[in-house]
């Protein structure tokens, strides 16, 4: 038996919106400690990783570990039937064939219930080793979304250069080229404002990445004020959006490699 309650449906809506473009169907692994999801996109270029801890839910019960295969488009459609402030409960019995999702209004005078069919999804999962990143950029997630949008007007690939001075995003295309530099601030405090950027660096590092994937990652911006971009030579770049007090979404993107 699985039962999980979130006080606001908007959080679950944002989580599903952040990954549904990259992953059409995914296995949700429920255990005593919480929910995990790992899925690659069809082209195996990006890996989405979601972790929601049990203590982030207002109620959480998982009698035995269970994997539920869910079509994210269907999940998203059902979640659109909830008001943002509705309480949402998801429930599945052992060996269930569907996931029950119910919404209760704040006044508790309206309760709706939907069932989404579960599916067997046979997908490869990968081992992500712990890595010592050479550089970590911590920046506003809104700023990240804006840079991705701006760069996409010019090119299809983006180069991220992290140095002690800051982080530079650049692109080029048939129409021309452009770059945006965010200077490193030592401390991120109120004086600097929430839009400031920090770059923790051991060694300068540079990666070229496909912009269309970053545009998908930027869909997680409503979940978190900040995003961290973790870079290491010759390995996928990791983008992390923390989900307040309960977990995170991480996206790993394979870099472009020299031919």
């Amino acid at each position: 038996m699985i039962e999980a309650v979130l006080p606001q449906a908007s959080l679950l809506k944002k989580i599903i919106e952040a990954i549904k473009e990259l992953v059409s169907e995914a296995n949700f692994d429920f255990s005593e400690t919480g929910i995990r999801l790992q899925a690659m996109d069809k082209s195996h270029i990006a890996l989405s990783f979601l972790h929601l801890r049990n203590d982030g839910f207002s109620e959480y019960r998982c009698d035995r570990s269970q994997t539920l295969g869910i079509n994210l488009e269907s999940f998203s459609k059902v979640l659109k039937c909830a008001a943002n402030d509705d309480q949402v409960q998801i429930k599945a019995t052992d060996k269930a064939e569907s996931l029950s999702i119910s919404f209760e209004s704040t006044a508790k005078d309206r309760v709706s219930e939907f069932n989404v069919k579960l599916m067997d999804i046979d997908i490869d999962s990968v081992d992500v080793p712990d890595m010592d990143y050479q550089a970590t950029v911590n920046m506003s997630s809104q700023e990240f979304a804006r840079i991705v949008r701006d760069m996409m007007t010019i090119g299809e690939a983006i180069t991220i250069d992290a140095t002690k001075q800051g982080v530079k995003f650049s692109t080029s295309g048939d129409a021309g080229e452009g770059n945006i530099l965010l200077r490193h601030r030592k401390t991120i405090d109120e004086e600097d404002g929430p839009s400031s950027t920090s770059v923790e660096i051991n060694e300068p590092v540079s990666h070229s990445l496909a912009l269309k994937f970053l545009a998908n990652f930027a869909k997680a911006a409503p979940l978190a004020d900040r995003v961290s971009i973790n870079l290491i030579e010759d390995a996928p770049v990791m983008f992390e959006f923390k989900i307040s007090d309960m977990g995170h979404i991480r996206f790993y993107l394979a870099p472009q490699i020299e031919e």
């Binding site: 690659m40 996928p236 870099p255 490699i257």
Partner: peptide
């Protein structure tokens, strides 16, 4: 310009 890498060429499939 480089060629697009794949996640499974960096991380092992378990």
């Amino acid at each position: 310009k480089g060629q697009q890498g794949r996640i499974d060429s960096f991380f092992k499939i378990s």
